[in-house]
Structure formats: structure tokens, C-alpha cells
């Protein structure tokens, strides 16, 4: 019963936060609602005994990613409220509602009606040896003691998933290089020709409402 109460509170937190992200006019409020959602999800992870993921969720997601969002919002000074009264593309919101409703219906059908739980095979026992599998969540260590969540993840991550882990390292390096290249500015004394063409200044563009290029863009793309 306690689990049900904890689930309901955490799920309500997460869902209210998710709605808040979408309907907040101010991006700063959206980021704060996102933290609320992430905390709710972290509680759900603890409820499923994924303690390591819960900690990572709080430290990496709430602590790093959302703070990065807030940094950029403050840096760019875009923390002004968005005007929801104007609908940028005619019929966008009804269409989005239709797509969202369809996603919801498909998801509920697949997840609840068709699958209801999972269709895979349980990893409790290794099919070859018949011994308790190392990947099982209730596996025990060599000393007969139950091993902790973080130890189990560590063992599997650095054996079965070692290659994926190494590729992750490469991905992170590429992302850092990409971020530096993208945000680099032309310094004095440096010739513009040495840089990529994206460094050239675009001509000032009129506010997008009366921008004549919009129609021609569709035609030239077609």
C-alpha cells in the first residue's frame, strides 16, 4: 500500500511538471517544472530499486542538464514570456492535439492492452548453465551476499556493454568539440577566410511576420 501511495505522489509530481513545461510562458519556469518532473522520475526509480539511476538522474539531469538550460536562457536573455495568443501556423495546435491523442491511444493500446507487462524472457537464470544470471536483479555475489545495484551495473557495463561504453566516450568527445566549434567567435586579427562560411554575417532579416522568403523557401525546397 505504501508503494502505491509513493507511486501516485511521484507520478502526479512528474505529470504536473510535464504539463508545466509545456504550458509555461517563461522558459525559466519551464526549466524549473522540468526539475520537478525529473525529481518525480527519480523517486519512481528508487521505488523500482534502481538506486544508482535515481542518483544519476538527480546529479546529471537536474544538476547538470537543467542548469545548462538555465545558463543558456540567462546568457541569451530569452527569458521573456512567449505570446500564446498568436498561432504561428494555421491549424498547428489542433493538429498537435490530434497527433498527441493518437500517440496516447497507440501507446496505451500497445503498452496496456497488447503487452500488459513484458513479453521478453526473464533473466533470472542463465539458459546455458542454469545458474543465476549475472544480469539478474536479484543475483548474489561470490561471497553469497546480495550485490548492490551499482556493483551489478558496473559489472555488466564493463563486460557485456564495454564496446558501447567506449563508443559513448567517443560520442562525448565529439559533442565537446562540436560545441566549441559551434560557439566559437571570430577574434580580431584572424582572417575570416580561414573560417568556415557559416561565420559570415547574414544580412539583417525583417521580423518573421512580414518576411517574404517564406513562400519561396517552400518552392525552392520542393
Amino acid at each position: 500500500m505504501t508503494e502505491v501511495v509513493v507511486f501516485c505522489v511521484a507520478a502526479a509530481l512528474a505529470l504536473v511538471g510535464a504539463l508545466g513545461v509545456v504550458v509555461s510562458k517563461n522558459p525559466v519556469h519551464s526549466a524549473l517544472f522540468l526539475i520537478q518532473t525529473l525529481m518525480g522520475v527519480a523517486v519512481l526509480f528508487v521505488l523500482q530499486e534502481a538506486h544508482f539511476l535515481a542518483a544519476v538522474q538527480v546529479v546529471v539531469y537536474a544538476g547538470a542538464i537543467v542548469i545548462l538550460f538555465l545558463f543558456v536562457i540567462m546568457l541569451l536573455g530569452v527569458d521573456k514570456a512567449e505570446d500564446f495568443a498568436v498561432e504561428p501556423i494555421a491549424g498547428q495546435r489542433p493538429l498537435a492535439a490530434v497527433v498527441g491523442g493518437a500517440l496516447l491511444a497507440i501507446g496505451l493500446t500497445v503498452m496496456v492492452v497488447a503487452v500488459d507487462g513484458s513479453t521478453g524472457t526473464s533473466a533470472t537464470f542463465d539458459p546455458q548453465t542454469g545458474q543465476p544470471a549475472e544480469t539478474a536483479l536479484d543475483s548474489i555475489g561470490a561471497d553469497g551476499q546480495p550485490i548492490t545495484d551499482i556493483e551489478r551495473i558496473g559489472r555488466v557495463l564493463f563486460s557485456d556493454y564495454a564496446l558501447a561504453f567506449e563508443i559513448t566516450a567517443a560520442l562525448l568527445t565529439i559533442a565537446v568539440i562540436g560545441a566549441v566549434v559551434l560557439t566559437r567567435t571570430v577574434s580580431r586579427g584572424e582572417r575570416l577566410d580561414d573560417l568556415e562560411p557559416a561565420s559570415f554575417d547574414l544580412p539583417p532579416v525583417a521580423p518573421h511576420d512580414n518576411q517574404p522568403d517564406h513562400d519561396s523557401a517552400g518552392e525552392s525546397g520542393a
Binding site: 505529470l15 510535464a18 509545456v22 497527433v99 498527441g100
Partner: peptide, 23 residues
């Protein structure tokens, strides 16, 4: 799973409706 589907749909609708790239 139901919670997951609900959150996914909310996120998808937000992605389609909002125009601020950060949001």
C-alpha cells in the same frame, strides 16, 4: 507504462506546439 505513455504524449505535444527552441 501508463505513466510513461502519458508523459511521452505530453512531451510530444509540447514539441509540436512550442516555438522556443529551448522549451
Amino acid at each position: 507504462l501508463v505513466l510513461s505513455v502519458l508523459m511521452f504524449s505530453i512531451g510530444a505535444v509540447g514539441l509540436l506546439v512550442r516555438r522556443n527552441p529551448l522549451v
